[in-house]
Design a protein around this nucleic acid. Sequence first.
DNA 1: GAGGGGGCATACGCTCAGCGTATGGCCGGT
DNA 2: ACCGGCCATACGCTGAGCGTATGCCCCCTC
Lengths: 308, 308
Amino acid sequence: MAGLGRLIPSARSLLVFEAAARCGSCGAAAREFNVTQPSVSRGIAQLEAHLGLALFNRGARGLVLTEEGKTLYRAVNEGFERVESALAAIVAARTQKHTVELSLSTGFVAHWLIPRMQRFHRDFPTVDLRFQLISGTLRGPFGNVDLAMRMQPGEDADCHAWKFAPELVLPVCSAAYLREHGPLEGGPEGAHTLLLFADPLQDFAHYWGPLVSAHALSHASIAFSDYAVVLQAAMNGQGIALGWVSVVSHALGEGTLVPASSRRVATGRAYHLMAPRGRPLKDVTLAIRDWLTTEMQADIARIRHLTT
Amino acid sequence: MAGLGRLIPSARSLLVFEAAARCGSCGAAAREFNVTQPSVSRGIAQLEAHLGLALFNRGARGLVLTEEGKTLYRAVNEGFERVESALAAIVAARTQKHTVELSLSTGFVAHWLIPRMQRFHRDFPTVDLRFQLISGTLRGPFGNVDLAMRMQPGEDADCHAWKFAPELVLPVCSAAYLREHGPLEGGPEGAHTLLLFADPLQDFAHYWGPLVSAHALSHASIAFSDYAVVLQAAMNGQGIALGWVSVVSHALGEGTLVPASSRRVATGRAYHLMAPRGRPLKDVTLAIRDWLTTEMQADIARIRHLTT
DNA sequence: GAGGGGGCATACGCTCAGCGTATGGCCGGT
DNA sequence: ACCGGCCATACGCTGAGCGTATGCCCCCTC
């Protein structure tokens, strides 16, 4: 409104007026603007002189709006509120990001998701991921996250569930380790170092059993308390680790890990992505589910020759 | 609203923003505030920096509001209009004056209305006129004025419209120029000076074409950026200008301008006075409409011998 | 009635926010 | 390729807006 600039003596006149009207005194308004009382007094006087009418009656108890002052104050209050709401809204909309909470294992995040985080942020520029990280077997309630990875829906029936990846396991090591020590099956007794994950919840013999002969269990072993560290040690050439394909698919595709045996363990079970029913199922959550699934399927296709 | 003062970097930020948004360029907004273009440019940049977002996209054609800018502009426009209405109302109530906003061309105001302003004030002593001045072709929204002059109602269907004057154009110059150089049609090639109005929105060849033979377009010419100045130059004897009768009727009646040719262009279109439906249609607005129309009809009758 | 507290108004002098000028870069039209 | 018109920025200037000091007024309490 071009006219407004011409109707007031300066841009700050109305801000000063509004503050004085609301606070009821020059001193209180001055404190709000971090100026001194004479500054507000002059500002109001300037506005009144410009308009040719009194907006306040002055008294020992401060300022009292005249009838014209009340009319103007109502308008200014409404007008400023309209502007302030819009300002607040556009600033909030601009900085507002979707926060999505994911419950995932440390190994998965470290060796599968982080390597493709750049692509994730490209595809989801307004999403801010928050992780509930689970060291070891995927477990525990996830009622307070948007998306969780778990083995089977049975853990928490009251949820949406979507199949994500089959549970397929194979021994993996670095290419350098393989060249130096040969595959897991060959070689003399105890020639290998097995990198174990010290997880009381997981029967690793259950997985190792089908992969090595009985006497092979005499191999040296190193145990770690986090599966992500187990895989890192394998990549560093320190031994052979169990490789859950859902976690090592990226590393196998990149060649930072290679199969250490021709044997595989397919348990018949599957990892699922789950969303609790008690939490809003946001579009962005579904989009991320789809993205994760698509990426996993692409990885699996890419390393099919290594896992069958 | 105390918050508003904290959301903007300075009190004048929003005034600058609103003007730039409405005018579509820093230069045009600067002219409205009687400052230079860099001043507006800095003001907008300061506001954007403070808010942390872009309000305009910059280009070779000026400023275009972003989506956030549009949101803010709507709010600021409404908010400021609310304040301005109250300000006008209390000033009018105090002085018992009616403020009437008119959207008219600079040429019309300068050469048709101002010459009869004394008579206007005699007939409307309590009316305080405010002008939205349009340099060049009458155009643009007029939702925030009481009365606008436009070519056809189609521009903004949601309005009252009353026919005001036909679009009739003839070449005009001063009497002294005519005595010295003769009419537009006669004389050697290139003997005249054409006073042009540099308005990209208006195809002046469309009007000059029927008024002069093809070779006459070789006349020397001077271009001005405002039609009011074009007419002033013609009155000063500097050449021949196109005279829209709706603007030059007073000057023709007074003899400060005379026809420079026997040819006329009647486009068949008509100027209208319009009032937006979204704004109160005040009695004083209708009275001014009638006054303007009566004055124009009297002018046209007075110069009928010159325009047919 | 006197005194004190708290309010607003004004004179004087200071300073930096906002300005203009100069200039450069970019874009679109010819 | 050239030109006109737009916006952005560096530099220096200045007066609008500020604080301080002070005076005056009103209201309340003793």
